[in-house]
Design a binder for these strands. Structure first.
Length: 327
DNA sequence: CATCAGGGCCCTG
DNA sequence: CAGGGCCCTGAT
């Protein structure tokens, strides 16, 4: 086990998201599997971040309310950071965390919707987002494929422990992601020894695409959704399920909902039509329903229902859901 | 003990 | 476009 890199220089800045902003429902997603690069408790999220080659520790603290949001962001580093770096880092965090998202039109249109309305009221200010870079999200997507949650957790842990950088700051020990360059030197055989199976090949090839600059996250941001989709589908091991998550979470397309995987189909069927999971509603019918009900906001709308369900599972207990989520 | 599906995707026919 | 195979694991 590598000794953690101690980050003892830090600075704190204030972020002001667009209102309304729900801190906990945005900074914590109970449907995400736990990983060693992040930690959450109500009002605080720690997150490691690799930015312009520097491993950093971030701490987000809630200093406001839904109506008057304020976030205190503390940034830990090994050495003093220059203002340009901090400025670019801040812009990146605002983008990734969707802090400028304007929800007013969405709320105006659906506040009286019979089923969505109450959920919007409950989670007012929640937004979808991603906490990582595109490369990191792709790795997470690969680790999710065709595996139970428990196995995804152990694969991600093994990868972070072997190729990530352990960091220590603010009393937390967390792992930071690796640079694509680091993973590029690892052999597929070595990866397979971590029991990630055939995913080793996908990780190697996706990594190579970044090292060879076949794909660039910042270029993609300025392209159309279909261009983004084609670029992502072109990556080995990345298919429609992973691309759907990436187009909505990473590139913030609020209407991206073209594909529903079998496990989601069962949950949606129960949630929206109260049908037995063994006889789920056909995917085509679910998609048509979302489109008809929520139109250009279908992904955002479904996100609210989905998160509401997983918060319930975290706080209370949802019998039928536990059977559909193999841990 | 064997078999199977799991928070998919690739490849083949 | 359907269906087999893929790594590994725990459930049955």
């Amino acid at each position: 086990m590598k000794r953690p890199k101690v980050l003892n220089v830090y600075l704190t800045i204030e972020l002001v998201p667009t209102a309304p902003f729900n801190f906990d429902a945005t900074l914590h997603k109970p449907d995400h599997f736990p990983a060693a690069d992040t930690r959450w408790k109500p009002g605080t999220r720690w997150q490691t971040m690799l930015w312009q080659g520097k491993p950093l520790g971030l701490r987000f603290e809630n200093r406001g309310t839904v109506a008057r949001p304020r976030i205190a962001l503390s940034i830990w580093s090994a050495r003093q950071l220059d203002p340009d770096f901090v400025s670019q880092l801040t812009d990146e965090i605002i983008y990734r965390y969707n802090l400028q998202l304007d929800l007013t039109e969405f709320y105006r249109r659906f506040k009286s919707h019979p089923t969505l309305g109450p959920v919007l009221y409950k989670w007012r200010g929640m937004r979808p987002l991603n906490y990582s870079s595109l490369y990191e999200y792709l790795i997470i997507a690969i680790v999710l494929q065709n595996a139970t949650v428990r196995r995804s957790v152990s694969m991600m842990q093994a990868l972070l422990e072997n190729y990530g950088t352990p960091l220590s700051c603010d009393g937390q020990k967390l792992h930071c992601f690796w640079e694509p360059n680091v993973m590029d030197t690892v052999t597929e055989q070595e990866l397979r020894a971590l029991k990630i199976g055939y995913r080793a090949k996908s990780i190697k090839r996706v990594t190579a695409a970044f090292v060879d600059k076949d794909i660039d996250e910042f270029e993609l941001r300025s392209q159309s959704r279909e261009e983004q989709r084609q670029a992502l589908l072109g990556l080995y091991g990345i298919g429609p399920a992973s691309v759907g998550y990436i187009l909505s979470d990473v590139f913030h397309h609020m209407n991206e909902l073209e594909y529903i995987s079998p496990w989601e189909q069962k949950i949606y069927s129960k949630l929206f039509f109260d049908t037995d999971p063994d006889t789920p509603v056909p995917v085509e019918q679910l998609l048509a329903y979302f489109n008809e009900q929520f139109g250009e906001y279908r992904m955002l709308a479904v996100h609210y229902f989905w998160e509401d369900l997983f918060w319930k599972r975290k706080n209370e207990h949802v019998e039928w859901l536990d059977r559909l989520i193999r841990l």
